[in-house]
Design a protein around this nucleic acid. Sequence first.
DNA 1: AATGAATGAGACTTCATTCAT
DNA 2: TATGAATGAAGTCTCATTCAT
Lengths: 209, 209, 209, 209
Amino acid sequence: MNQTASARKPRKGRGSAGQENATREGILEAAAQLIVSEGFNACTMRSISQRVNIKAGSLYYHFDSKDEIVVEIMNKGTETLLEQVRNAVEELPASTPFVDRLRRAVHVHVSCKVDRDLPLLQVYEHLTPVIKRQGRVVRKTYADFWKDLIAQGKATGEIRADLDLDLFAPYILSGLNRAPEWANVEHTRIEDIVDMVVETTMNGISPGA
Amino acid sequence: MNQTASARKPRKGRGSAGQENATREGILEAAAQLIVSEGFNACTMRSISQRVNIKAGSLYYHFDSKDEIVVEIMNKGTETLLEQVRNAVEELPASTPFVDRLRRAVHVHVSCKVDRDLPLLQVYEHLTPVIKRQGRVVRKTYADFWKDLIAQGKATGEIRADLDLDLFAPYILSGLNRAPEWANVEHTRIEDIVDMVVETTMNGISPGA
Amino acid sequence: MNQTASARKPRKGRGSAGQENATREGILEAAAQLIVSEGFNACTMRSISQRVNIKAGSLYYHFDSKDEIVVEIMNKGTETLLEQVRNAVEELPASTPFVDRLRRAVHVHVSCKVDRDLPLLQVYEHLTPVIKRQGRVVRKTYADFWKDLIAQGKATGEIRADLDLDLFAPYILSGLNRAPEWANVEHTRIEDIVDMVVETTMNGISPGA
Amino acid sequence: MNQTASARKPRKGRGSAGQENATREGILEAAAQLIVSEGFNACTMRSISQRVNIKAGSLYYHFDSKDEIVVEIMNKGTETLLEQVRNAVEELPASTPFVDRLRRAVHVHVSCKVDRDLPLLQVYEHLTPVIKRQGRVVRKTYADFWKDLIAQGKATGEIRADLDLDLFAPYILSGLNRAPEWANVEHTRIEDIVDMVVETTMNGISPGA
DNA sequence: AATGAATGAGACTTCATTCAT
DNA sequence: TATGAATGAAGTCTCATTCAT
């Protein structure tokens, strides 16, 4: 179910997982905050360790390398986002029209990507392609969710049958992912962003629609 | 026209500007290639200097800092892109319908972003938000071009009057910029990408269109 | 008999010495294997502990320091070697001529130094002079055995009376100790090595002999 | 002629080789001194750099890695030793009997291995097998010199024809190399060592000789 | 007996930058 | 214009060791 979880170190052992996980999560959270607020280069093992109040070397008790930390952050971010969006959409009544499902998904996605309390979800945009590559698998899972979502619209005839989902899904996600970058979040209401995206996505920008 | 030109070192002074510029351009080109092919972290002052066949310290005769190099690359990339796209669109007869202008712009934009011979144009995606911020001004110029383009469509009634360009322009650009990332360039024809983008942008994905 | 025994931790106290010793030996064996197969630097407290299936910190219940481990290995190696060689020689009938005693000693020494199942005996060559210094006492015991052996030859007139044993004994041992290093053990029969050593030692390399 | 020389970095460029080499040599010398006097582990990049009065990072201008330094020391040591011994032997009149050639070679070898002013020549015994392996080639050259030397003795009938040089040469060298270890250099005259080695090597230890 | 977690010292290395020549 | 040599700050990581539990 959780694809990266299985890749985690089996260190924790028996029941003390609570405590163990606390430190691990703390490290991930701290690193994510650093990346998002100060930039990727400012996220050093030393700066991370300071935020968690341990010494730099101690990080290596919990992770094998800085890379492991970064990759786990990246994937956890995507996983969390998937969870949030999926849950929100699945909460909707089965009869909900596609456009409303879409709106819901877009809304949650953008909200999350902009929420300062969820640094893990914003890390992605700060990473270099070289690192991003290590998140392909998880990211594909997320893209697949969107493809499914739209495919359902196709099935009910609410979406054009000839739409190539393999092209369209990543395309729309690219636009959404950069919301924090292009929308001056301070001065734009999320609802306006969502409305614009949903409206143009469904009906396009030509007046005939 | 060249907004960063004023930031250049006033050193050149005499008449040998030709020679000077050659080296400058060489450095920028080399750095861009490195960033694109090996990743931002692999682009060090030394690796750059090797590609230009000089020693690391000599770079400082041409640039004040690495930052200057990177920022200039970034901005030059955007400027070149703007030039390419603008020229292509302006070449069209004045009577060209909006949808064809759009198609032209999208085509050139995507082609450039994917062209391995134009590393400067691909650097942007490899940069961290922290650095990207230093390219706001030039990037705004490029966004303004797109806003203008669409605004013309509005003026002729080919585009819905209520479209908020301040939101829509950066949104569509985000999707386009990441084309190299989401479209498996090896297996997808650029024409297909362009068609999909133009079609959904104009008419949306609902079947009514 | 066991000169390092007195250096051991007095912890064991009670009666569970059997169990205790088992772990101690296991640790020493594991460390020796590591040193011999992966090199001295690869022998860390953690790598040792992994081989014994305990955690690094637990090693300190059995030993005070890594140094203690290494020194004990080194000395145990020498002690074992002494035991082996001495037993082999003492098994010989009292009337055995010197040359055959020598041959026996050389044979056992070289065989042991080359035997992959006796890592403790091969550790010595992997140590730095700084550490080796801590094994002087035990090593002197071993050298004394050889001096005695040759002295017996002197006593029976089978060896030249003017030979300075304090110089010669360590000299010949140096050559023997490095057998694994200089003899390509894969392609040389131990018997050939022994024959060469004994022959040249007894009669020299000049043809007159 | 000099097998490692060609492996050196071609950095120096044109004529300033004198200055360049000075620093390089200084670094090697300093490192060798550290290894010999304080042990291999005490020879860190920092401690080396302190002795040369530069900062640790600056060492990397002259060498690519610590390994390169150590390996070069090791090989330079062997090469120098070869030079010394070969020169000394070749100085002898062509008519010099084998035993005197041998004595000369042994003398120079042992003297060098014991001379505190030639730290490079003593480094070898402080190295781990893992590192030593990287010196095989050069060391083979040295062993070959000794094989040649003895082979000449064979040719003139001064040495037994049936002696297996592939076994004997490395064997005798092992003993000689450890001279500093086994001979208490403070209290033993080098001449006595040499005499013992030459005498027993030529005539063996049996009285018949 | 053993472990989980951490420490502190220090290892090697990289890199942008400087500057006399 | 360019270089050789160095710097200083910082980076990631390793390791022997400690100690409360």
